[in-house]
């Protein structure tokens, strides 16, 4: 499923700021913050394991990726963007008071 499957067309989301633009923008911020933490958690776990195994040397992860590697990441990148941008629609995902 995609998270947009849960959007309800006739239920505008609750708003808490004078300008609802801020409500939506802060949603983007928090979605991004979640993603950043997920990545940080994964990267730290990976680096710990690689270090223990002696697989990488300093600088291996810093080099520019190939075009092939970037293409392979496209689907994951699209899902990442949806998680951020869906906040802009201002719709409930679970039926409740507006």
């Amino acid at each position: 499923m995609r998270i947009s499957d849960t959007l309800i067309e006739d239920r505008p989301e609750q708003t808490f700021f004078e300008d609802p633009a801020l409500d939506r923008a802060f949603g983007v911020v928090m979605a991004l913050a979640t993603e950043v933490y997920v990545q940080r958690n994964r990267m730290r776990a990976l680096e710990r394991q690689l270090e223990v195994a002696g697989v990488i040397e300093n600088g291996d992860l810093d080099r520019e990726p190939s075009d092939e590697e970037r293409l392979a990441e496209a689907e994951d990148r699209d899902a990442f963007v949806e998680g951020l941008m869906i906040n802009l629609l201002g719709k409930q995902q679970a039926k409740g008071a507006s």
Binding site: I3, T6, F16, F26, M30, A31, T34, E35, A94
Partner: peptide
């Protein structure tokens, strides 16, 4: 108020919901 509403939304229906 915003966080009470939307942290719960992310918990259930966010990308990692």
């Amino acid at each position: 108020s915003w966080l009470e509403r939307h942290l719960q939304r992310f918990k259930y229906a966010g990308r990692y919901g």
